[in-house]
Design a protein around this nucleic acid. Structure first.
Length: 340
DNA sequence: AATACCTCCAACCGCCCGTGG
DNA sequence: CCCACGGGCGGTTGGAGGTAT
């Protein structure tokens, strides 16, 4: 027995919103606010829509100062860096990008940024072919073992299965999101145990002063997991040996001579077993290099962006989340105060 | 020109969490 | 403490539009 639906599905309109519906919803909220009850709102204004649908429409589309598309490079970097830090917490990421919605960012990541990342990885890899014979050999042997099952690791079949790195909340290993995240997190793990980001060759800088845009992080709050959910959300639970210091920080950007992907390649050469979760990149590589892959996809390259943000990680997800939520809330509240 | 395939994104779905009774 | 409810979130899907064959 599931829970009761939030609205009467039979009497609720679904699908794209009409301009009339938009106007109705917008003008009502602008005049009266949401009333603190999205479920009741559509009935009040005579909309045959689910309350959740109204909320979504408002937040993602009708709300003022929403920007769609045209993501800047800085925004790309922020998204990537936050993804490194906190994973697919789109609402938190959106809170750091004024005018952006979580849905937009999520779509943007899934359709563009992820591919950029893969494209860059591919490019770097091709450039480095020959400099890593071991890898090349594995690749060659892997190619002979292409399988319909994407979940199989086609490379390194001759190697013993490495002991899994004991991440407390290990996710499926070949899930795209989790794989990229693990990859990034692992790369983001180049921080010393004393909490200082390693400066050697990484020339960490802020691409923009995010803190001046909107208070991104609370630098002072201790990051302590107190619940299973927090542990799950805690980047350190996935990367337990890393400590991150946000003092005086904010987001930092990896510039430096060594691109992180080049370093990734080095890591792959020197210690492939550390890269579990990366295998899918090679699988993607193969899949995308097959004749059927599109010019568009092949042309996508991480090189189109100058750098990948590579922060010392927003170590305080809770603080971040709290602030992000509060901020978004206040943002709306300023414009459309709602009676409580 | 027709068809197949791909990309993108608005919207939906279902789960989880916080809150109030 | 328990339960019901609403809000919020991340994942997924459907379809429109674009591109390749």
């Amino acid at each position: 027995m599931g829970r009761a639906p939030c609205c009467d599905k039979a009497n609720v309109k679904k699908g794209p919103w009409s301009p009339e519906e938009d106007a109705k919803l917008k003008s009502y909220i602008e005049q009266h606010g949401t009333g603190g009850n999205w479920i009741a709102l559509p009935q009040k204004i005579g909309l045959k829509r689910c309350g959740k649908s109204c909320r979504l429409r408002w937040l993602n589309y009708l709300r003022p100062n929403i920007r769609h598309g045209g993501f800047s490079e800085e925004e790309d970097n922020i998204i990537c860096s936050l993804y490194i830090s906190i994973g697919s917490r789109w609402s938190v990421i959106a809170a750091q990008l004024p005018g952006r919605t979580d849905n937009d960012i999520k779509n943007y990541w899934n359709t563009r940024l992820k591919k950029k990342l893969l494209g860059k990885q591919r490019k770097e890899q091709q450039a480095r072919r020959g400099s890593c014979p071991k890898q090349e050999m594995k690749r060659a042997s892997g190619n002979a073992m292409v399988s319909d099952n994407e979940n199989l690791n086609p490379y390194w079949p001759e190697l013993p299965v490495p002991a899994p790195i004991p991440y407390p909340n290990e996710e499926p290993r070949f899930n795209d999101h989790s794989s990229i995240r693990r990859l990034l997190i692992r790369l983001g793990g180049r921080f010393s145990d004393d909490g200082q980001p390693l400066q050697n060759g990484t020339n960490l800088q802020l691409p923009i002063d995010i803190s001046s845009v909107q208070q991104p992080f609370d630098h002072s709050v201790n990051f302590l997991s107190s619940s299973p959910m927090n542990a799950l959300n805690n980047p350190r639970s996935e990367f337990p040996n890393a400590e991150y210091n946000m003092e005086g920080g904010g987001l930092h950007m990896l510039q430096g001579q060594n691109s992180f992907l080049a370093e990734l390649e080095e890591m792959a050469c020197s210690n492939p077993q550390r890269l579990d979760g990366l295998e899918f990149l090679y699988a993607q590589d193969m899949a995308n290099n097959k004749p059927g892959s599109t010019a568009y996809e092949q042309s996508l390259s991480w090189g189109e962006t100058s750098s990948l943000v590579y922060p010392p990680v927003a170590s305080n997800y809770e603080g971040l989340q709290q602030q992000g939520v509060t901020q978004e809330h206040d943002f709306d509240e300023l414009r459309y105060p709602t009676p409580r």
